[in-house]
Design a protein around this nucleic acid. Structure first.
Length: 275
DNA sequence: ACGAGGTCCTGCGAGC
DNA sequence: TGCTCGCAGGACCTCG
């Protein structure tokens, strides 16, 4: 389940390989991942285009083409973006959704087993609207605890749900929301608008620390996630709560609780440390 | 504006 | 051994 650190890892690896490359051939295997674009429009939009840059926004990879259009890939839960030279291994091709043959013998593959992911092709206006619907980047320079509170703390929703709302804050999903709330000692079910300024400060600090650390570790591979070269991340070894339901809290020893009561997603927390 | 719940899709593992 | 079923959940949708 690629979140901010996973997608950041992927785009950092893709960037040196694919920037400047020309798309020679495109193959779209599944159309159900297309959003707001038809097969014909996509293939025509990609044919012969040159890749200008590869960026990340929220949990999405954004490939800028020399026609001022952007190929946006949302990996969803099980999506991976992979590059290789020559022929990709069979495992990559098996669940390929989109395969791009580039010059210099490079291949870029978007594979997605469950196809919860999405592919968009946006013009400048479309991108502006897309970008505007996403909240601020938590690792952006100048992103403060105060800004976090202003964007996330304006709702009575559970803080965990609000944290994962991409319109309020970009890039945080279930794993890092669980981790950050535990590190900050905040009850995931607490209404977001009831956090104290001190709590926002702690959450801001720990969220950024955890996201940055996860990028260094090249992300969390729980099941499907792979880096841009097909390797596993290493942050799963640094997780303090996610996947540790029933095991002792590493801070106080209390058995960690697990619940699906917030947004129907697994929430793991320490009822002793998180108030 | 909120929570609850459904939808998309497939692999995997638990349980019978 | 072989089957069914629940679970994993990002983004989006409807309903009350």
């Amino acid at each position: 389940m690629p979140e901010l650190p996973e997608v950041e890892t992927i785009v950092r690896q893709l960037r040196p390989v694919v920037v400047g490359r020309e798309i020679r051939r495109s193959r779209l295997v599944h159309e159900d991942v297309l959003q707001g674009v038809t097969r014909r429009q996509l293939l025509r939009g990609l044919a012969g285009a040159r890749i200008v840059s590869v960026q990340r926004r929220a949990k999405h990879a954004v490939i800028l083409l020399d026609r001022n259009t952007r190929l946006v890939i949302q990996p969803g839960m099980t999506g991976s973006l992979l590059v290789c030279r020559g022929t990709p291994e069979a495992e990559w091709k098996r669940y390929a959704v989109l395969q791009l043959k580039l010059d210099r013998d490079q291949t870029l593959i978007f594979k997605d087993v469950r196809r919860f992911g999405a592919i968009l092709l946006l013009d400048a206006d479309g991108w502006e609207q897309y970008d505007a619907r996403l909240g601020p980047e938590p690792l952006g320079s100048g992103f403060s605890g105060r800004q976090l509170a202003e964007h996330v703390g304006v709702t009575s929703q559970a803080i965990k749900k609000a944290l994962m709302d991409q319109q309020r804050l970009a890039g945080v999903g279930n794993i890092y929301a669980n981790e950050a709330l535990h590190a900050a000692g905040i009850d995931p079910s607490k209404p977001a608008n009831r956090l104290s300024p001190e709590a926002w400060g702690r959450l801001h600090r720990h969220l950024r620390r955890i996201l940055a650390g996860a990028i260094v570790a090249q992300g969390t591979t729980f099941r499907d996630y792979r880096t841009g070269t097909g390797a596993r991340g290493r942050f799963q070894f640094a997780l303090k709560v996610y996947g540790r339901e029933g095991e002792p809290c590493l801070r106080c020893g209390t058995a960690l609780s697990g619940t699906h009561s917030i947004d129907a997603r697994i929430t793991v927390f320490c009822h002793h440390c998180q108030r």
